[in-house]
Design a binder for these strands. Structure first.
Length: 732
DNA sequence: CTGGCGGTTCTTTTT
DNA sequence: GAACCGCCAG
């Protein structure tokens, strides 16, 4: 069979990667080097050249979106959907495994997946039940702790003992949490992975079966794997199988949620006879942009090493703009956008990137004023919305009345006269008797434990749910109709219509959207792991974000965080708010490795740009209600100067100069910075020496003339504010 | 039981 | 600056 078509249109390195022998393979794919393409083509190659059945292949990704994309691109290339191949996210595949082997995994048949919101509620519930002080152990932190443990593959019993009461409490809470989830048949995201790993580890015949089945495993974005995912892969691949991992250690930006960059660094140690291939030719960006990215990332120490190059010319230099506040920054961006738009660029080819979501507001306001369409990526996911979760909770409750989480969620939504008091009694009885809140409710009514008013309210709630459970069992009723009816009976529409503002309207819209999503859900009966379409839909709702925006196809400016931008590309990119304390975020100053991660994040941002990149920062910024003066980010000075050009839009308005413009460490070829350096001789970013405090870096300043104060971050003493006129600072 | 007021807290986010 | 939580009054 002629398989050469698979290698057409690939460069030499890509071909090497795609046609690499059937052994452990590590593909270090730089930004814009055709990573997904290589992965997809390799799958096609394995099937056609090595004649491996799709049944023996597994491809793992992190997001549903990329799983879907991979699936459809394989189909496109090979012509037919790859029958029997497992393509999905780590969580999705683990889930599939657990549904198929729930008994072996020690689960209930109807186990449910919790999202982070459910998890938080559960933790709060537990803490109330055990009377644990939620100021000493904030529920969010408890969740974070538990998830971090699970990411590392640790159950409560594995958490090392500690003497300090805080850690002790955490561990204890983890125990309580384990008990509650076990009892309720609830699995959080981390549990899916942990459980799937334990399932294989503790069941040699089953493990052998899957090891023999999956001859080759392919993993995308390998640099983002956490410990448990890595362990799962290793055990699954075993001695006989092999793995192709594609990743870029320079784009590892999820360390804060457990991703271990070490996994990619140590790949060659843990897997045998690894064939390493580097893809360094970039097809996305201009030379200037790549040079900037290379220069920046070379400041990181722990790297496998890679240098991107292109043969498509150096393009325009990067433009750097110093806004004098965040308004000015936004105005500048819009101005440039308008120029590009008038030249004929589609709005959807322009992206505005920022470090944190809070920064989007100013830009948004500006875009609204100028009537430019925009779209914010990320934001709240469809199935995460309050009204959607409530509707889903009704379905869950109808499916299983003993689902306490669902019960708590909707028992008084819309308000039906069952308040905190009654619910408290329910909880109490449930806990004392060791049964569910539903059963507790039945008991209350039977024994008249509450005043008639509350009792009646509860009774009518119970019969409402009973009616619903009849409804969902009608075999000829479509999933869409089911939700239509549930929403109707629960009275959710009038409830939200009563809400003031546009919020209510949007919620009603979303509920309608849910109905149409449900009716469009096709449950292929080959998903034999599921006993009913409704259950499958509920699981999907938890695991799948559900594209939040409906107007996806409208031509609009793309706004997103840097994290959300990974994997995307745009002709014109604005990297905004590139200031110390913001980016790198001041939260990253504590631990040593975090700054490197911020730098990688910046690298990701720069490499999103295809033709033109603008980097902007503001000298003063209102954030969280108060004003701050940040110096330009260290990352700016780490970019080779010959890739950057400073811009000034308007003729400079004279403004009070407390200190000369804190431009770059190095002298810039900007006429302005030299013009405005009359009196003061200390720059932000300068290294200075103080007779008592020693050496440090100037990181901030305020005031002018004799009152000028500077903030210096001393190597040994931490940061201090000093009055310039008195402190005997020596510039080094 | 509900609604309103004040005090507190604030990265990044997929599953 | 705003969103979220907890407390208090109706």
């Amino acid at each position: 069979m002629d398989v050469s078509f698979i290698l057409d249109d690939l460069n030499d390195k890509q071909r090497d990667a795609v046609a690499a022998p059937l052994q452990n393979t590590l593909i270090l794919a730089g930004a814009g080097s055709g990573k997904t393409r290589v992965l997809v083509h390799r799958i096609a190659w394995l099937m056609n050249a090595y004649e491996i059945s799709p049944y023996s292949l597994m491809a793992v990704t992190f997001t549903n979106k990329s799983a879907k994309e991979m699936q459809s691109r394989i189909e496109q290339l090979v012509g037919v959907p790859p029958q029997g191949m497992w393509v999905g996210t780590f969580h999705g595949l683990a889930h599939r495994l657990l549904r198929a082997h729930w008994r072996d995994a020690g689960l209930k048949e109807n186990f449910q997946i919790m999202d982070s919101d459910d998890q938080l509620r559960l933790v709060k519930r537990i803490m109330k039940a055990f009377n644990i002080d939620d100021t000493r152990w904030p529920p969010k932190q408890v969740c974070w702790f538990i998830n971090a443990q699970k990411d590392e593959g640790r159950r409560a019993a594995h958490v090392p003992d500690s003497h300090d009461p805080f850690s002790k409490g955490m561990k204890e809470l983890y125990f309580h949490y384990e008990e509650a989830t076990e009892q309720g048949g609830l699995l959080d995201f981390g549990e899916l992975l942990l459980r799937a790993h334990e399932l294989l580890l503790g069941n040699p015949p089953l493990l052998k079966h899957y090891q023999e089945r999956f001859k080759h495993v392919l993993v995308d974005e390998f640099q983002d794997t956490n410990s448990i995912q890595y362990a799962w892969l290793r055990i699954l691949v075993g001695q006989e199988g092999s793995i192709t991992a594609v990743g870029d250690d320079d784009q590892s930006i999820y360390g804060w949620r457990g991703a271990k960059i070490e996994n990619i660094h140590n790949f060659t140690k843990h897997f045998t006879e690894v064939n390493t291939i580097r893809l360094e030719q970039n097809y996305r960006s201009t030379g200037h942009i790549l040079k900037a990215a290379n220069g920046l990332i070379s400041n990181n120490e722990d790297r496998l090493g890679k240098e991107l190059w292109t043969d498509s010319g150096s393009g325009e230099p990067i433009s750097l703009y110093a806004g004098f506040n965040e308004q000015d920054e936004a105005r500048f961006i819009i101005e440039i956008i308008k120029k590009w738009r008038d030249k004929g660029t589609d709005l959807k080819e322009i992206a505005i990137l920022y470090r944190s979501n809070a920064q989007s507001r100013v830009v948004e306001e500006c875009l609204v004023r100028e009537q430019i369409a925009y779209r914010i990526y990320g934001g709240h996911r469809f199935y995460d919305r309050l009204e959607i979760k409530n509707a889903l909770a009704y379905a869950r409750l109808a499916l299983d009345p003993n689902d306490d989480g669902a019960m708590e969620r909707v028992i008084n939504v819309p308000p039906r006269g069952i308040g905190e008091r009654s619910i408290g009694t329910l909880r109490e009885i449930a806990r004392d008797q060791g049964f569910s809140m539903w059963k507790a409710a039945v008991t209350i009514i039977e024994q008249g434990l509450l005043p008639a008013r509350a009792s009646n309210a509860i009774r009518s709630f119970l019969s409402l749910i009973e009616g619903m459970s009849v409804c969902i069992q009608q075999p000829d009723l479509g999933l869409g109709d089911v939700f239509e009816q549930l929403i109707q009976e629960a009275g959710l529409i009038p409830f939200h219509e009563k809400e003031k503002g546009e919020k209510g309207e949007a919620r009603v819209e979303n509920l309608k959207e849910l109905v149409s999503a449900a009716s469009g859900f096709n449950w292929s009966s080959e998903d034999e792991e599921f006993s009913s379409p409704l259950m499958a839909f509920l699981d999907k709702a938890v695991l799948d974000a559900g594209e939040a925006q409906a107007d996806e196809y409208q031509d609009s400016i793309q706004l997103m965080t840097l994290h959300a931008a990974k994997g995307l590309e745009f002709p014109l990119v604005f990297l905004t708010g590139v200031e110390e304390n913001l980016f790198p975020s001041k939260m990253s100053f504590e631990e040593p490795g975090r700054i490197e991660e911020e730098r990688r994040l910046c690298y990701v941002g720069i490499t999103r740009a295809m033709e033109k990149l603008y980097i902007t920062y503001a000298e003063s910024r209102r954030l969280y209600g108060s004003e701050s003066f940040n110096s330009p980010s260290r990352f700016i000075s780490e970019i080779p100067t010959d890739c950057i050009e400073e811009v000034r839009l308007r003729s400079q308005v004279s403004r009070p100069v407390s200190m000369q413009r804190p431009a770059l460490n190095r002298p810039m070829n900007s006429s302005l910075s030299s013009l405005q350096q009359p009196t003061v001789s200390i720059n932000m970013g300068d290294k200075v020496k103080h007779p008592v405090f020693g050496e440090g870096l100037v990181i901030n300043s305020e005031g002018q003339g004799a009152q000028t104060r500077v903030q210096v971050n001393f190597d040994d003493e931490g940061s201090k504010w000093l009055v310039l006129a008195f402190a005997k600072l020596e510039v080094l």
